[in-house]
Design a protein around this nucleic acid. Structure first.
Lengths: 342, 342
DNA sequence: TTGTAGGCGTTATCAA
DNA sequence: TTGATAACGCCTACAA
């Protein structure tokens, strides 16, 4: 089924247009260096033969694949899918393809070699802060310097280019908002601690609490894993405490949804009995019942900016000694899962 | 930043191990054809030099990229992300990379050429039934036969390999279930008509209605586009009718969510006043309020089976004259958005 | 402005 | 079992 009549090569086109292969190549990559007439002849020949450039040969010759590698911990998560979409779109604009890898297996070092040093991809867009930076430096130490942009999840290494959001600020902003609503008994569902962004949100939470003169109570702190099941588990953890918080700041919307769902089973209503604020503003947030108050992450922008930066780096249109650090701002989106009390 | 000290080639390894490049190549691809001792020497040399195969060169030589192209209309949709995840995982198992393209632009023909005839990808996994099959046949006519598996969305061409679900049956099953619950005033939110699966669901809906001796009322039929906003619009359409249906079968869960959300604003409760049944069973379905009754699509299986089939075809381990047609079954998942009446 | 020639890194063929 | 060689399709000095 794979067999093809005969894929035309640049030679075939050359023959067809009665020019040399070099000329065809020039017409395709730097048309201005070819005379009007031959250019047209070559274009005609390209159409006639149905020629398509062989990318493998081109990559080999140019030592560039015009492809970027996107690595995320879990593409299945709807949060990432929007980002992926933005990445693909932006990459296409710049003429790049996107190779997607969902999980950086057990041996990131080997994995990175396989993809990046093998001429399959020219750069890496990393959406996984849990990756050991040691592995990245490992490549560095080998004398290799690879175009890399860490996005969304922070990597605690100022040398690494990054496009992130102001997690800490956003978290403290969320707490301040709850405080304004009159809440003082505030809980927090944390994400997995291997993610730096999680930790930033936790720090922001603590800061917000501190600023408000509020105590962080351990029984109102729960560590989840950014999925709805974690929200359920968190609800059960809170339920086991002597007293329920009146408001909970969740590390992401999914955990908020799980939390609200589980509490409702106990006739604890959101926002009547408890206010819940999420993080991300995933698509379903505004249509959930109650519509979720949340800290919106500019996901399209993250994807777009990260892609743009990476390609700039790959193409060397950006000074390489000063790392790129973009920090996008999150916005508080007030809906109906939070409510003024007392 | 791209510059690398010196990427070792197979030649470097050969020198290091005092063998020929050919031998190194053999050790790497058919170790059994090399003597124990040299094999070990070569392996050591590979480790020492930190050699990684240049995939571009390999692809050029082998005329195979060990990469598949995944094309979906909208990766941003959470429904697809799970499938994509499954595809990537399964492909990895078989040693394939996955190139993802979100939108098959205006000119699918050109697009397909660019990716598939250019040696970037060995086969296409198509999740978009709206693609004009003429374009596909265009390639065929050129004497080109490309490994292609259409998944999830049906393509009305028995020659094209496909992995789909029993949309028609599932739809009529949904109607039968509503009927069993005592409903006779049943509406339907259709997906975009360019998708064949949409049409199959519509046919199933009509069949189910017919079997039950029920009339399909046009004012209870609404065409959406598989997103939550469509559900909102559908609600408004139904609201404008003289009478509301007592049950609505939705083409997917997102439209069901939008519908329920909008009706609630009018104090029309699901499931008290209206039963709603979705399609797909996306992650949030079970935690939505009310938890959605829905026809679950085996998404991981779709992704896995489709990938497996495609790679089998690429590698020629499957007879090529008889197209593969896998039909997976959808399951009715009863939750709380549907309710007995009368 | 155009053509010639060499090489990118790999693997398959053939001979030793 | 191993090695020399050619070829995959393209681009880029360099020469004309």
């Amino acid at each position: 089924m794979v067999v093809i009549k005969k894929t035309p090569t640049i030679q075939d086109v050359a023959r067809h247009a009665s020019v040399s292969a070099a000329t065809v190549s020039r017409v395709l990559s730097s048309p201005e260096r070819v005379s009007e007439t031959t250019r047209e002849r070559v274009h005609a020949a390209v159409r006639d033969t149905g020629y398509t450039m062989n990318q493998a040969a081109r990559s080999l010759r140019l030592k560039a694949a015009r492809t970027i590698l996107l690595a995320a911990p879990n593409i299945g998560n709807p949060f990432y899918s929007t980002i992926v979409d933005a990445v693909i779109r932006e990459a296409a604009v710049r003429g790049y393809s996107v190779l997607v890898a969902s999980r950086i297996g057990d041996d990131p070092n080997r994995w990175l070699r396989d993809y990046l040093l093998s001429n399959r991809a020219d750069g890496l867009l990393l959406f996984d802060g849990s990756l050991d930076t040691g592995a990245l430096h490992g490549l560095w130490d080998d004398g290799v310097s690879l175009p890399l942009v860490a996005a969304y999840d922070e990597i605690p290494d100022p040398q690494i280019n990054s496009v992130i959001t102001d997690n800490r600020l956003a978290a403290s902003r969320a707490i301040r908002y709850l405080r304004e609503l009159g809440h003082s008994k505030i809980g927090h569902i944390i994400g997995p601690s291997r993610n730096q962004s999680t930790n930033e949100r936790l720090v922001g939470f603590r800061e917000g609490m501190h600023e408000a003169g509020l105590q962080v109570r351990p029984e109102w702190l729960f560590q989840g894993s950014y999925n709805m099941e974690s929200g359920i588990a968190a609800a059960e953890w809170f339920l086991a405490a002597d007293e329920l918080p009146t408001a909970v700041f969740c590390g992401n919307d999914e955990m908020a949804i799980g939390l609200i769902h589980r509490l409702r089973r106990e006739k604890i209503d959101c926002p009547l009995d408890i206010s819940v604020i999420g993080f991300d503003d995933i698509a379903v947030a505004r249509y959930f019942d109650p519509p979720l108050t949340t800290m919106r992450q500019p996901r399209e922008d993250i994807g777009k900016m990260a892609t743009r930066s990476l390609i700039d780096i790959i193409e060397g249109t950006v000074p390489e000694n000063e790392p790129i650090h973009v920090v996008l701002t999150s916005d508080l989106v007030v809906r109906e899962s939070t409510r003024r009390i007392g």
